[in-house]
Design a protein around this nucleic acid. Sequence first.
RNA 1: GCGAGGGUUGCCGAGUGGUUAAAGGCGAUGGGCUCAAGAUCCAUUCCCGCAGGGGUUCAAGGGUUCGACUCCCUUCCCUCGCACCA
Length: 966
Amino acid sequence: MEQDYKPQEIEAKWQKKWNESRVFEAEPDDREKFFITIPYPYLNGNLHAGHTRTFTIGDVVARHKRMLGYNVLYPMGFHVTGTPIVGLAELIASRDPQTMDVYERLHGIPGDILPTLDTPEKIVDYFKVESEKAMRMIGYSIDWRRKFTTTDATYKKFIEWQYTRLEEKGLIVKGSHPVKWCPNDNNPVEDHDILHGEEATIVDYTLVKFRYKDLVLPCATLRPETTFGVTNLWINPNVDYVKARVEKEGIVEYWVVSKEAYRKLTFTDREVEYVEDMPAKDIIGIMLTNPVTGDEVISLPASFVKPGNGSGIVMSVPAHAPFDYLALRDLYDADLSEFGITKDLREIALISLIKVPEFGEFPAKEIVENMGVKSQTDPKAEEATKIVYRREFHGGVLKEITGKYKDYPVSKIKDVLTQDLIGKNVGEVFYEFSEPVVCRCGTPCVVNMVKGQWFLNYSNPGWKAKVYKCLSQMRIIPAEYRVEFENKVDWLKDKACARRKGLGTLLPFDKEWLIESLGDSTIYMCYYIAAKFIERGDLKKEQLSLSFFDYVFFGKGSSAEVEEETSIAPEVLEEIRRDFTYWYPVDLRSSGKDLVPNHLLFFLFHHVALFDEELWPRALAVNGFVSLEGQKMSKSKGPILTLESAVSEYGADITRMYILSTAEQTQDADWQTAGVDSARRQVDRFYYFARDLIRSEERSDIGTELKQIDRWMLSRMQYHIRETNIALDAIQTRNAIQNSFFLLFNDLRWYQRRGGKALLYYVLDNWVRLMAPFTPHLCEEIWEAMDHEEPISFAQYPLYNEDLIDEGAELAEELVKNTLGDVEEIIRVTRMDPEKIYLYTAPAWKNEAVKCACEMQAEGSLEVGTLIKALMSNPEMKRFGKEIPKFVQKLIPELKSGGAERYGAVVGMEMEEKALLEEATAFLEHEIGCSVEVQSADNPEYDPEKKTRFAEPLRPAIYIEKKKEE
RNA sequence: GCGAGGGUUGCCGAGUGGUUAAAGGCGAUGGGCUCAAGAUCCAUUCCCGCAGGGGUUCAAGGGUUCGACUCCCUUCCCUCGCACCA
């Protein structure tokens, strides 16, 4: 080993060796396999600190498993499908100043190359080389023979096969979907096109069609079940309404809605035609039919109705909606003759339809009265609405009056009921923004239905059921994310899977469309297996027929049949098939948590759709993001720290160590220069410790007689080994490094301080293997210097050995450590200059008392009274009658609160305590800097201040004699 | 709004009913080593204490318990996701 730690030299050396010896090129053999994959990076920039974290986690798992004896496959590819790369090419071609600056300065693209990257193809070619270079630089144990990009002609054949098979299974359907739309630009708006309302989401209201003669008055609601409790409708007399001809799927109706609502309707998937204005007065005071109950209800005037919300017509459910109740109450004594209404509104009976624990029959009435809400214009009305809504939504169930929906939880009824209403043509879905959205051009946006779109039919209940099943059999890391995944499966709706622009594969059954980029990255892990053969030249693009993929991935047909069609040699076909059956399924897919609601979900959906159950993925893991000195990273605007620049500056091992130890799992990590510097010092210490030890030519022989401190070291190391393995299995890299590095190092320091020497080399041998997954280059270097022939990457990972646990030795060291601590504290507090220290071990009777207490604790009879009695009955003990009660009162709470085990161990070693301290005398003298003498409290030779009475088992009494003033 | 996860001692962060004033790291302070050091080693780092002790803490308030950072309720605050975009 070199005198100085030079990361870059060591790292280049080992990367070259790994590459030349092809050790990470995985081939099937008789070992158990482990197939780990990380989502391939999207190539619209260089790899950055975020990738560094996700990929390094994957590499650590891969290396750990490899050292545990698994045959590990860790492959990598490149994702380039979609629009961002096209967008980037355009920005570079037009020399967009911000883009040029960010990509030259932060992504580190040389100024003479950047302007040449003006087509998507050139960008892909550039970044795929750079990305591989970066991943090699940081030492990932990737099998590079399997790399590909998603625009490779062969990959496109694979995606065509996937979509052909999905379509055959009926999982791809055609339909319409709502998008945010700017009527001025006549285009969908994406988030960066929005002036106001970036936060807006598209909310689906249910339109309930109330009828009056040949007219439909649709009411938009988020709570269609309340239609059962409608007593009347609300029309705003100050709003302009229109009559319109509305046609959908061949059914023609005449609707009355507000002018604003009419405009919104024209963008929906209905044919809408203006007929005439409809004065509000004409539709107030009329009797309409509730389409759900058949009841006749009256329409009444209300000022709270907003023309821009929904249809501008509101159904009134005064039993459950505070606004409705208030508006109705406000009209009780009003003169409505101008609307031709003469009826006494007090006759309108409230209709209750939801049972909720917190309220009685009429929640709205109740809360309005309790809160003292005055009228529909009272601000408190809003608050009352929220409270009732929340209680009913979460805790409410439907009452008898709802017929077959009785006992349905309110939170689950919406979709079911809406579908039923649609089926009877008394309801429709109406999309609306959660808040107003304005386009950059200043035009208010609308929800527009895009027609003829291809969808992945994720809402298919049978499909979802399979995903639930798959999830239930999977390991989710961390476990808290299981519920998150389940919720997202539940929430996922049909997803548009084709678009017009960007890079990608054409939809095989409709060549007008490109497969959307989240849809072509779902089962590509199996493509890694074929990719090796493609790279080797065994397979040509034209040969990759549907039957080829069916055979190698599904096992359908025979190699002979496929050969006949494709003329691929049967041996090759069978080998690919063999490889596939060996490596599949994916044992672990690990990724950033941002991919949970999309990619990881689709990964599951597509696997369960296409593969048999035994090939479904086994485990998912997620990790948090990385920020830079507290700032969010952005590929296009900065700040960004590339993997390449981090490794160039700090070295691979230090970068790995830092990114893995700075945050755990789903927590977000913040990259801070100060933290990396500290990681550098830690790695330095490791290097120098190893270097000095190896040079010292001290070697260990654990076969010889071990001293107590040696047994202690062995024992402590077992805990760290165990914790590290447990942590790595749970992908808690921070915890793993905490144990395998910091805690182990601290113990090693104590070992050396206590004069431990015999096991140093042995400890290093274990330690370097423990650390190998985190800092592989450095560990290879040390390992080699320790004269090992085989690379550490394939050495046995240390495993917990219970036989090496030595509780006695640990307790003994604890005694020494605590005693030293106590002495130091006394010296510090009293600020005395010690001449000599006297330690007094506990008198025999106290040991006896502890023993007795432990026995009583074991049989459950331990009480202050019983213990004192038991002790007093012993004539030997009676001599100490005065001290017993005090000692017992202190002892019992400690024993009862879990100290029994510890005291149990004391009992076992009672005779040794004095010997132990005497053995440590030299150490204590050295540490404290004065002489130390151990005596027994039973017969002290010198005890001027009667300190012996404080002596307890495991806690010797201390007397410190001051240095005499000269 | 809905869903998920959080708020711990200067900072980063362990810790889910009892050896917890609370791991470990960072930073800071003192000391050893050294010509010297941002290298390393030792100690301290909530408050008080000239004998190993005592006091007050884990967002806020309330509750359960012999006992709560840990369990329950309420409130406040923070982060992420909410879709056709990778």
